[in-house]
Design a protein around this nucleic acid. Structure first.
Lengths: 338, 338
DNA sequence: CGGAGTCGTCGAAGCGCTTCGACGATGCGC
DNA sequence: GCGCATCGTCGAAGCGCTTCGACGACTCCG
């Protein structure tokens, strides 16, 4: 492996000159630069990352802390990860993958040993124990999610409150007045992942504003969970004409159940789903949905980390506006049926 | 951030002694060790990764090259990644996540700049262009998959040939004689990911050995793809009593289609699926399946990388034996119906 | 009781890079 | 034509760690 000294010798310059050619931090004449670059290419020189990190205190690596339990939401996690890696590479950074189950210790390990310049953390809980730890680190961090007290830490997420509002407004606009919410599984609420609450609050507020009759219910995974959930919803609200589904796993069994019980979508019941686009379009009925813009969120998280690294100003709460795509699961209801 | 010198001073020893306490490479008296460890704990010392890498030429990081297109098989990829990260951590290594689309250049970048000690590469094609590049690296690599010429590079994968054999033997044992294979999508064959071929060869060989009447067909994604595929299979082989499905995406629409056309599983048609356990158990019918042991494969890949790093002997072709789990999708067929 | 090992520790060199200050050479204004 | 910037380059210091050789203090054996 050639070193910067080898390159310097080959180009007939000093090592510092090579370094300046590489970093562009000082002006170098065109000829010198050309000679150096030729030497670099010829020798196949790549600067040693460790040496560089040691001398410059920059690693050009960011940590991505992901919930790698084989769990719900796998495709969404994957989309985040893809976006983060891609965006990081476009800023000349690499990504070190950590699992959530290393917890606080993992964050401190990589931060204290100077393996990374910044951290991106996903799947935050309302009072996540990692937040105080992150605050203590010298590296900046960006959260994907919105825990309770994130003072001084940048957060990026979909605006789930607005998403709920948007879903209800859409249905309201189509004449629906009696609407059920099929929520995430109780485990999600228990885990205090805040998107569930934010969505729920937005739902309840908008429901009140628009004067709707609504009922909300979490939904256990599996066909049985869906059956129970729908039974409860139907029991509490008759004349139901629409559902908002904030639960990816439930979608498929829900559609199966509706079909089995002879309720046609969208003729008898309309549905708005909150889920990734490809999930919405891979169902028996193409679902009108509000996308979870994992790609945008991941990219924005990286951009934000980069801004923090160059001491540029950032917003500390970035909630992306939801957008609803109409497909074939919502139907206009005539006033007489309201 | 305290350095090794700070620790040394606090403990009243030389920096090298601290280093030896950390690495255990030389004997250190119990008292000294205790004092040093106390100082480390008190100061919250963590060795600087870059400095360490520079001095020792070891990074304690391995690269994981994953196909991060948002594509088929997402859950399986995720399981591999989880297993690799977990196993790496248990060997005191971290994982740098690279995407397949950086190609050869990405591998060379991280290897030449000494960011990683070893590489684990997934989703190999038959004549993958990355293989020659990997051979040139000074870091060892382990492949998850089995490309054509992998001389000198360790490979780990499920034995797909044996899996096909196992599936057919199971069905044959239950009296089935006319069996269809619903294969991966043509895109997979085109991409020359070798597991498809290995499975197919195993299928054809075993079919011949057992004297079965079989027909094989790739299957495009989506309900339409499944319909076409089944139409072709039925056209070529009447009296079909069983299917082997080597295509995760196809499972759900296939079951829908069979139900819609009044063929009950397992009463009218038996199924053996090759897919992760949780996919098999999340279908309307619990499927008898051969698991894709992503966790085991990922773990073994890391173990192998670790062995290579300590210059221990490794096998260069590690094919894990498949295992079939009986659930509710296969039925004994009476001789009269054969 | 002397020499040969072992044990425990230290000092110094060096890993490959960045960066700071210095310095000759130019160009410029007046 | 002289001083002053600016430009382009160099040399050296150092980033924080590992590792090698050295060395005093013991232990052990014959």
């Amino acid at each position: 492996m050639p070193t910067i000294n080898d390159v310097a010798r080959a180009a007939g310059v000093s090592p510092s000159t090579v370094s300046y050619v590489l970093s562009g931090r000082r002006p170098i004449s065109a000829e010198t630069r050309a000679r150096v670059q030729a030497a670099i290419a010829e020798l196949g020189f790549h600067p040693h990352a460790g040496a560089r990190a040691l001398a410059s205190s920059k690693t050009n690596v960011i940590a991505l802390v992901a919930p790698l339990r084989v769990d719900v939401n796998v495709p969404v996690i994957m989309q985040f990860a893809t976006a983060v890696v891609t965006a990081a590479r476009s800023h000349n950074h690499d990504v070190l993958l950590l699992t959530k189950d290393e917890g606080t210790a993992g964050l401190e390990r990589v931060a204290h040993s100077t393996m990374v310049d910044a951290l991106i953390v996903m799947d935050l809980e309302r009072d996540d124990v990692r937040i105080p730890a992150l605050r203590r680190l010298k590296q900046p961090s960006v959260l994907i999610g919105l825990p309770a007290d994130h003072t001084g830490i940048a957060c990026v997420d979909l605006d789930f409150g607005a998403a709920a509002k948007l879903a209800l407004e859409h249905l309201h606009g189509h004449g629906h007045r009696r609407i059920g919410l099929v929520g995430p599984s109780p485990a999600v609420y228990r885990r205090q992942t805040t998107y569930a609450d934010r969505f729920l609050s937005g739902f309840l507020e908008t429901s009140a504003e628009l004067g709707l009759r609504t009922v909300t219910h979490p939904c256990e995974p599996g066909a049985a969970g869906v059956r129970d959930c729908m039974a409860d919803i139907d029991a509490q609200l008759d004349g139901l004409t629409a559902l908002v589904v904030h639960n990816e796993e439930a979608l498929r069994p829900l559609l199966d159940l509706l079909q089995a019980s002879g309720r046609r979508v969208p003729d008898d019941i309309s549905i708005v789903a909150i889920c990734p686009r490809d999930v919405a379009t891979s169902m028996p009925v193409d679902l009108t949905s509000i996308d979870i813009p994992a790609h945008d969120v991941g990219t924005l998280a990286v951009e934000t980390a980069m801004r923090l690294l160059d001491n540029r100003r950032v917003d500390y709460t970035m909630l992306l506006a939801p957008s609803l795509v109409e497909r074939n699961s919502c139907k206009e209801i005539s006033p007489s049926h309201r």
